Simulated scan of single mutants.
Amino acid sequence: MEVIGYARVSSVGQSLDVQLEKLAKAGCTRVYKEKRSGRQAETRPELQSALGYVREGDVLVVSRLDRVARSVLDLAKIADLLNKKGVSLRVLDQGLDTSTSEGKLMFNLLGAFAEFEADIRAERQRDGIALAQQKGIKFGRKKALTEAQEMRIRKMRAEDGFSVEQLAERFSISRSSVYRALQADGVAA
């Protein structure tokens, strides 16, 4: 069994000292640390390294819950991964420890809340998209060309014999955008 620590602050100007001191007192033999935003676990390489390193029987220790996850959903994902690997999570400031029955209960509750939160968020998102579409709002990337530019491309191709590469360079667009403009009116590429 190994006790692994993880410390994080959001910006370069902040200090990890307080967290590192707590992790040392908790008996961490290895500490992963980083100065990055905590919005998504996937974008934090040191957290990913710590999660990849821990093995069955190990304990991952953090000073506060928000150091490892900024959302309940992220926390549930991390807790699930640790559970599958047989690794306990200990949160020093909140007194949570998934090696205890109470700690497991707390994380199961957090997992249920995370699922509920995700369902509610998805429902609100669907409602918002439907309302926006009713109001005529278009989703997706903005077209590279206006209708007038597409007509000009078709004319230059048909009447002046411009190649696809020449049109792409002239309009500063990709070849696929040229092909789409040509297909819009049924003109052969």
Rank of each mutant, 00 (worst) to 15 (best):
T146S: 11
T146E: 03
Q125N: 13
S88L: 11
A148M: 02
S99H: 09
Q94C: 00
S101I: 00
L89E: 09
A122G: 11
V68G: 01
L60V: 05
I137N: 06
K138L: 14
V87T: 06
S88T: 11
E115Q: 14
A114I: 02
L131P: 03
L131K: 12
K84P: 02
G57V: 05
E150V: 10
R67Y: 03
Q125H: 11
A76G: 13
F116R: 04
D58F: 10
A112S: 14
M106A: 14
E115N: 10
G86I: 04
E117C: 12
G136T: 02
V54N: 13
R124A: 02
R70A: 10
R124M: 07
I129K: 10
S63E: 15
D127I: 13
G136V: 09
I120H: 00
L75T: 05
G140D: 08
D58S: 06
F116D: 04
N83G: 11
A144I: 04
A76H: 12
A148S: 11
S71E: 08
L105H: 12
S99Q: 08
F116N: 09
S49W: 10
Q94L: 00
L60Y: 02
V87N: 06
A112L: 12
D80N: 08
A112Y: 00
E115S: 07
L96P: 08
L92H: 01
R70I: 10
R124F: 03
G57L: 10
Q149E: 14
A76R: 04
Q133R: 14
